[in-house]
Amino acid sequence: MNSVGKTYFKSRAVGRLSSKNLNELKSNLTDIEVGKEKLQKEINSTNEKLRKQKSELSWINWFPLKLALQTKIESMKQVVEETNETLSKLERDYDKHKLGLEISLPEQLEAAFGTLDDRFSEMIDAEKVWDVTTSQSIDRVAERTTADNAIERTEVCLRRAHNSKIQCDYKALHLENANGGDLHIYPQFFFIEKEDDFALIDLLDVNMDFSLTNFIESESVPIDSEVIDHTWAMSNKDGSRDKRYADNYEIPVVQYGKLHLSSKSGLNEVYMVSNSESAYGFKIMFDEYKEVLASSETSKNSEHTGRLLS
């Protein structure tokens, strides 16, 4: 099968994904992250300096004529103490130097996000979730199959998670991404990180489409999925068994739920869920949540603030 007509579900480079209205916030958070990295380098350097000072002091204390070097020993002890104090201060500054977002939600919006989280829990409980990375039309006659499309998929995990760069009171709804940065859904934006860059996409800029897909399942059928038909490994034009193949065998056709997440900035991710009802429920609540978010004062007067947590 060639690659003609193959559709790739892959988002743009992370550095180009952010919504325009969140570029300033991204810049502020980047500055904070740079400061954090600088502190880490200073901590590493000071630790190495302290190690050498302690080693020198230990050697002098062992030296047989250390009484003659008492003044130097006392001086070295003072130096070690000062370096220890410097290291302690750097470590305290590092602990405070986190990417903090002040996210204040009105009661109605907080309740809506809680319901969205509940629908996400139902998807977490699905037996299988896959990231669909490509889809390609099939010549059914040439391939001797009843399938319309061939897809490439990778099983992924859904969970709730804190992110090291975002410190707030809400756990993100975390969707693994097989061919890019993982998606973290916060109350007002999507956070996506890949290697040394990240993106912030306004949640209102994200569209989520749902569809049912009939999939010829060559692997084990998830217990929470519906088998709606059967086909043959090799079939005739009308879908009947091709009797020319003695070892031809029957394959179940399973119905899954499919979610397509997209944005004008270039988000383009597709997930297939074994429990189609849970995927549909999440899509419906996501749309309802967007309506509440759009009408809320938080959305109209967005004041996302990047700051150092103390």
Rank of each mutant, 00 (worst) to 15 (best):
V4H: 14
K6L: 13
Y8E: 13
Y8H: 12
K10M: 06
R12I: 03
R16I: 00
R16F: 10
R16M: 07
L17S: 03
S19F: 07
T30Q: 13
I32S: 02
I32V: 12
I32M: 05
K36D: 04
K36Q: 09
K38R: 10
I43F: 04
S45L: 09
S45H: 08
N47Q: 14
N47L: 11
E48A: 11
L50F: 04
R51G: 11
K52G: 03
S55G: 04
L57Y: 07
W59S: 14
W59N: 14
P64D: 02
S75D: 09
M76D: 09
Q78C: 01
V79Y: 08
T83Y: 04
R92M: 04
D93R: 14
H97W: 09
L99Y: 08
L99R: 12
E102F: 11
E102Q: 15
E102I: 14
E107Q: 14
E107F: 11
Q108C: 01
Q108F: 08
E110T: 07
A112N: 10
D118A: 14
R119A: 09
I124H: 00
A126H: 02
A126P: 11
E127Q: 13
W130T: 02
W130E: 07
T133N: 07
S135L: 07
S135D: 10
D139N: 15
E143S: 07
D148P: 02
D148S: 10
D148R: 14
N149I: 00
R153L: 08
T154E: 12
V156T: 11
R159D: 15
R159N: 15
A161V: 02
A161N: 11
H162M: 12
N163G: 10
K165F: 12
K165Y: 08
C168Y: 08
Y170M: 03
K171N: 12
L173Y: 11
E176A: 12
E176D: 15
N177C: 13
F191V: 00
I192T: 02
E193K: 14
E195V: 12
D196M: 09
D197C: 05
A199C: 03
L200G: 02
I201M: 06
L204M: 14
D209L: 13
F210T: 05
E219R: 06
I223K: 13
I223F: 12
E226M: 00
E226P: 03
D229S: 15
D229G: 06
D229V: 05
W232E: 10
M234W: 14
N236F: 01
K237Q: 11
G239E: 03
S240Y: 14
R241Q: 13
R241K: 15
R244L: 04
Y249M: 11
E250P: 02
P252V: 08
V253M: 08
V254L: 00
K258N: 05
K258A: 05
L259D: 03
L261D: 05
S262F: 07
K264H: 05
S265P: 00
V270C: 15
M272H: 03
M272S: 10
V273E: 01
V273R: 06
N275S: 08
N275Q: 02
S278Q: 04
A279K: 04
I284A: 07
L293D: 01
A294E: 08
A294M: 07
T298Y: 00
S302D: 04
T305Q: 15
G306W: 01
G306H: 03
L309C: 05
